[in-house]
Each structure stands twice: as C-alpha cells, then as structure tokens.
Amino acid sequence: MFLHIDHVDKQFTNNKTVHQILTDIDLTIHEGEFVSILGPSGCGKSTLLSMVAGLSDVSSGKITLEGKEIKKPGKDRGMVFQQAALFPWLNVEENVMFPLRKEMGKKKAKETAQRFLQMVQLSHYADHYPHELSGGMQQRVAIARALAMNPKVLLMDEPFGALDEQTRARMHKELETIWVETKKTILFVTHSISESIKLSDRIIVMGTQPGRVIADIKVNIPRPRQMDQKEAAELQRRINALLKTEIDKVVNEELAHAANH
C-alpha cells in the first residue's frame, strides 16, 4: 500500500452550520500509478488533494503515504496548482531551485534545476522572470519545480485548466512523457473526461453533495491514446452517463434553491 486514503471525511463549519463535503473516501493508490480524480465542480476534488498535500486536515479517517500518516505539507508530495504559483520575484531557475536550497549546495541545486527545466523544454528560459512567460510555460516551470524536489507523489489540481485547447494537448503529451520517464505516482484532478481518459491508468469518478467515490475505473487502452479510438469513445460515454446523474442533482438543487428564494 503506497498512498492510502483511509475512510476520510471532511466537514467545513460555516456560521455554525456543518457542511459535509466529503464522506468516506477510501482509496488505495499504488506506486507509479497515474490516477485521475474526476467529478463535477464543487464535489471536493481540490479539498481531497489539499488534504493529501497536508495543507488542510481531515475531519476523520487518515491518509498515509508508505505507512506514515500525513499531518503536514512535506517535500515527499509535490503540488501543482491551477495557477502556476511561481514566485514573481525569482527567475525561472531560482523558482525551480526554491525547494532545493536547503538540502543541497548552490551548484548542485542549479544543475538539478537545469535538468528538470530541460525535461519541460525550458532550459533556455532559466533567467527569464515568470511574467515574461506564457501561461503554458509557467505551468511547465511549476511542474519542473515540483519534480525537482523528487517527491514520491505528484499532486496536480487542474494544472491545465486555464490553458487553451492546443496548449493543453501539447502539455498532455509532455506530461505523459515525463510520467513514463520518471515513473512518478501522479494524482491528477480534472473535470475533463477526455483529459482523464487520455492520461490515466485509473479514473476515480466522484459524485457530489456530499462528495464521494461513485466509480473506480481501470483504463487499459494502450498509449499514446487517441480520443477517437473505439475504447476511448466507449469509456467516455460510460463516464458521461455516470456524471450526468450527478450534474442533474446539482441543477435540481439549484432550481429548488431558486424557487425557495
């Protein structure tokens, strides 16, 4: 058991009312697996990921990585957010060196940063500042930065959500190559069905209100995958049907709420 999300619940309390966000999430993720978490907006995907990152606490249950319970953020889990979250006062190379500066000398950190910038094909931009890069380039730097500290798990929260279609397709290819090269365990949050089919070994489909796992689907389509392949189209139809019930639920609730006000 590599990463174990063990019967985790999450509640938020707002003005004394308790909101159940996630109920009984129970997942085992194996080393080297590329797992997508797919679900409608607001079902708690980001919340789940930030608990794995250690940025927020579980309400009950526990999360363990290689048997050790996760309580705080740590370098064994790298995180890539929807916005690149690069530090604007550091150049590209310094950004990638940020997590390394304590554990290795400057020279070694520089070499490591260079290596990972090469992996995302941005070594020529080492001394550029984040505001000089496009959104896709910034996100690649963020991926390099997370990988450079050699985490056991890479957590990605809709990392390509803000990018245009073509850039996103390029990023998919690049991420797949990186994953094949590094064999990292990746937990990838998305609400795009095709993105999850294209990239992952396994898709966790989540329902909403409260957030829970409604399906855990193995994807056995050989890579590189095309969305017009028969199996891919078939899988997409199946997940669509699963999610439709969930999205209808959100819409109905919205309508009921509107009617009451």
Binding site: S50, A53, G54, L55, P73, G74, K75, R77, G78, M79, F81, Q83, A85, F87, F98, P99, K102, R145, A146, M149
Partner: peptide
C-alpha cells in the same frame, strides 16, 4: 497561493516569512 505553494516545498516559519 504563494504560501500554500511554499509550504508544499517544505518552507515554514521564519524561512516562509523571509523568503516568501
């Protein structure tokens, strides 16, 4: 977001304050 990103990279306390 900067603070969260820094925390996932092992920065906290004084280091977080001065560097981020």
């Amino acid at each position: 977001l900067y603070i969260k990103a820094a925390q996932t990279m092992g920065s906290k306390g004084i280091d977080l304050f001065i560097k981020v």
